[in-house]
């Protein structure tokens, strides 16, 4: 039997492509990962009022700028998906790279933010608050890095007009990364 694509991409029992279903499962498992971190943080935060003094040292401006950057990058990737749906590969390629630029901007801001905090003595070992802060934001930043790398790989195919459906798949992942930050921002930067 000769097929143009692997069997797994043509399965239709769920009514959606296997790739999209797989990404949805990834997102489902990510909800539990981030949910566990955030739920634990909220438990301890409600228990310890003194954490508000620690949270007062987080850089709200950096957090706010990063929120704007991620929201805008979410717009770029959904516009890239829209362009890919319309077979406009040039536009899709452009929007994917604008999203990657957003990811890099986010990471550069985070790097400056963390350097400042660490130089002032707010390290991961300083207290439980800072342990949660670096763990939650660090796991999220790792997801930003992974997303940017995958987008870079996908963009190479998009330029050759191949596997355009993958723009939607990485878009779904990217929007989830954005949603996680939407909750991290008020928890780590606003609630002081």
């Amino acid at each position: 039997m000769s097929t143009a694509q692997p069997v797994a991409t043509r399965r239709s029992v769920t009514g959606m492509s296997t790739g999209k279903l797989a990404v949805m499962w990834v997102i489902g498992s990510e909800i539990v990962i981030f949910g566990g971190i955030l739920a634990s943080y909220i438990m301890f935060r409600l228990q310890h009022d003194s954490w508000s003094h620690e949270a007062a040292h987080t850089n709200t401006v950096a957090g706010a700028v990063n929120t704007f950057v991620l929201l805008t990058s979410s717009l770029f990737i959904v516009l890239g998906h829209n362009a890919a749906e319309n077979k406009d590969t040039k536009k899709a390629f452009k929007y994917i790279w604008l999203t990657i630029l957003g990811a890099l901007t986010f990471l550069v801001i985070k790097a400056f933010e963390w350097s400042g905090e660490i130089s002032h003595g707010f390290t991961i070992k300083k207290s439980l608050f800072w342990s949660f802060y670096y763990t939650a934001a660090g796991v999220h930043a790792a997801h930003v890095i992974v997303g940017a790398i995958i987008m870079g790989i996908i963009s190479l195919d998009v330029r050759k007009n191949k596997n355009l459906h993958r723009v939607e798949l990485i878009g779904l992942y990217w929007h989830f990364v954005d949603i996680v930050w939407i909750f991290l921002f008020p928890l780590l930067y606003i609630a002081k």
Partner: peptide, 9 residues
């Protein structure tokens, strides 16, 4: 499916 994961959280 996603709501089930939230429920687990």
């Amino acid at each position: 499916m996603l709501l089930t994961m939230l429920f687990l959280m």
